[in-house]
Design a protein around this nucleic acid. Sequence first.
RNA 1: GCCACUGUAGCUCAGCCUGGUAGAGCGUCUGAUUCGUAAUCAGAAGGCCGUGGGUCCGAAUCCCAUCAGUGGCUCCA
Length: 641
Amino acid sequence: MVNFDHPDSDRMKLLLIHSDRMEYRVTKAIKGIAEDVETETDSMEDCLVVFCTVEKSDVKFKDEVVSGCLREITSVAATLKTEKVMLYPYAHLSSDLGTPGDAKEIMRALEAALSGSALETKRSPFGWYKSFDLNCKGHPLSELSREIRPWTEKKKAEESKALGSEKKARSSWYVLDLEGELHPVRVEKNKVKGFDFKGDTQLRKFLEYEISKSRTAKGEPPHVKYMRSLEIADYEPGSDPGNMRFYPKGRFIKSLLEQYVTSEVKAYGGMEIESPIMYDFEHPSLKSYLDRFPARQYTIDTPDKRVFLRFAACFGQFLMAHDATFSYKQMPVRLYEMTRYSFRVEQRGELTGLRRLRSFTMPDCHALCVDMDAAKAEMMVRFNLSRKILTQMDFRIPEELQMAVRVTRDFYENNTEFVVNMAREYGKPIVVEMWDDQFFYFVLKYEWNFVDGQGKASALNTDQIDVENGERYGITFTDKDGENRHPLILHLSPSGAIERNIYALLEKAYLESMKGLPPTLPFWLSPTQLRLIPVSDEQLDLCKELADRLGEFRVDIDDTDRTVGRRIRDSEKEWIPFTAVIGDREAESGNLTVRIRNREKAQREMAVEELLEEMGRSQGTMQRSPLPLPRLVSARPKFVG
RNA sequence: GCCACUGUAGCUCAGCCUGGUAGAGCGUCUGAUUCGUAAUCAGAAGGCCGUGGGUCCGAAUCCCAUCAGUGGCUCCA
C-alpha cells in the first residue's frame, strides 16, 4: 500500500531526440484547441527535439512538472553539448491525456522556462496536425525518454523549502537556573562549558547530546535485547522499517500504559475523540501546514486521491474544532486522542529498537485558549498532569528526566517570569534553546528528555504554544465582546509515544542492572505479578486454589516438567516480581515462601493475606488488567527463541 | 538519505580469509526423572547459509545488485 511514486500513468512523458535537422509544417487545425500560428513551417538544426505529453495528473502539480522538465532537458542538452531545443507537443505518448487547456498552459510555461535559461528554444504549435522531417544522429545518447513524476517533484520542492527554513533556524543555548539566571553554554572539545552542573551528569549529558553531538554509543542499545527476550516487541521484516510487532506481553504493557494515560487526560478534562488516520494532500489548511516541514509522510493512493498518514492528531482535532461552535465560556476546549497510530517516515539510520519508530502510539491533547495569559495558565495545569503521569510510570522527576525549553527570543524576553517559574516548578536547572526568529508555528515548547546509558537523549512529553494554526485552520470562538477570534492552541503529549515510554523503562532497567540490581518493570506493568511453582504435581491443585484467592493480581503457575531451580531461573528471567514455591511445607502451614525480586535475596514466609497486602502496596492505585496469557506456563507458545 | 559493518537451525553464534559432504550451545519434541529457590539426564527432529543475478567443473565461502539489522553522520512537526 505504501507507495512514494505515482502509478505509471501519472507521469509527464518526454521523448528526446538529438537531431541534425528537424522541420515541421502545419497541415490542419484541430477545431477548438488549435493555437494561432505565425508561421506555417519552421526548422532547427543540430538540436534536441523534445516530444512532450501532458498527462491528466500533471495538472495538479503544474509548477513541479515544469521545473522537473526544465531540469531534465537542460541536463540532457548539457550532456549532448547542444544549445538548441525544439519542443513538440505530442499527444501519442499517453493513454491518459490532460485537457488541451492544461496541456497548452504547461507547454507555454515550459517554453518560457527554457527560453529563460541559456537555451535557444522553439516550439511547434499546439492543436494542429503536422507533417515533420526528423533525422536522428544515432549515437548512443541520441534517443532518450524521460518521465517526470509530479509527485516526486512536489516532494523534492517541499523538502527543500522546509529544510531551507530549518537550516536558517539559528539558535543559542543556555542553562536557566532556579534563581532565574541564564547561563550561556558553549562546547569545547565535546564538553559543555559555561555552567556548573554540580554532579548532575544526566543534565550535562543531555546538553552534550543536544549541542555538542558527542556520542558515546557502542553497540546496539540494551533495550533491544530486552524487548525481544521479554517477548515485548520485535522487528517485523515483512513491514516497513520502524513498524514493530508486539507480542502478547508487549501488547499488554502498551495497552495498560495507553489506558492509564487516557484515564489521566480525561480526568484533567480532555474530551476523547477519534479522527481519521489519513488526510487529503490538497486540503488547503493541511497543505500550508505541511509546507512547514520536510516531506516525511507515508503517502497512499486511495481509489480517488492521494492521501498522507497523520503524524500527530493535530489535523483531525483542528478540522473538528473548525466546525465546532464555542465561546470563551467553554474554554479552554480540550480535545484528546490516543493516536494508534501516528506515522513519520524517519530516516533509516535513526530507527533502532523502540526509541524511534515510523508508526507509533502517541497521546495528543490540544487545548484551545482565549489568549496568552490563559494559554500560560493552562500549560502549567498540563505541566502537572505530565509530571503525575510520568511519575506513575516510574520516572523520578526531576532527577531522571531533563527539561528543555525552546523559545523565541522575543517570547522569552516578554515572558521571562513564566519560563523561570517553569524551571522552579520543575525543580532543577533547565536547558533553554533560544531562536532569534520564529520558524515553526509555536513560540515556545518544552519537553522532558530521557538520557539512556549510551548518552542518547529522547524527548518524552512535550507541550507547545501554537500561535498560527488557530488562524490557518479557521478555528474561531466568540469572545466576551461578541467578536470572533482565533484561539491559541496548546499541543500536549503528556507521556510522549507509548513505545518510547517502554524503551525508556527498559533502558532504565538496564541502568539498574549496571548498578548490580536486578532489572525490573514497574509492578503494575508486569504481565505476571506472582508466579507459583509447585514442587511436584501433587501441589498443582493447591496452586490453582491459591491463584484464585490471589485473583485480583496476575498470577500464573509454572506447571512444566522442570526442576524447581530451573523454574525459579525462568521466573527471574521473565522479571516476575513475586515468585512462590509451593511444596509440602506450604500445603501444611498454609503460608507461602515468597521470593521477592528487586530486594537483596529477599525470601520470606508470609500468609496469603500478608502477600495480598504486599502486592496491594506495590500496585497502588494503578490500572489493573487480567493475565494476558494462559495461566499455565505449559500452555504457552514461545514467541522468541 | 550518506558512509561502514552484519545477515548460517526458533534463539545466540562457529564455518567464509585459502571454493569441494553445513556445525555447536540453548530452545522444541520424545523418554526417564517428581525435584525446595538462577540451568536434571538421554535421544530425536530441525537449514532455498536473507533474496536475486554473476564467476567457476563446483559457491554458505569470490563478485554485483537488492532487502533487513547495527554503528556513525544527517535528521527528529
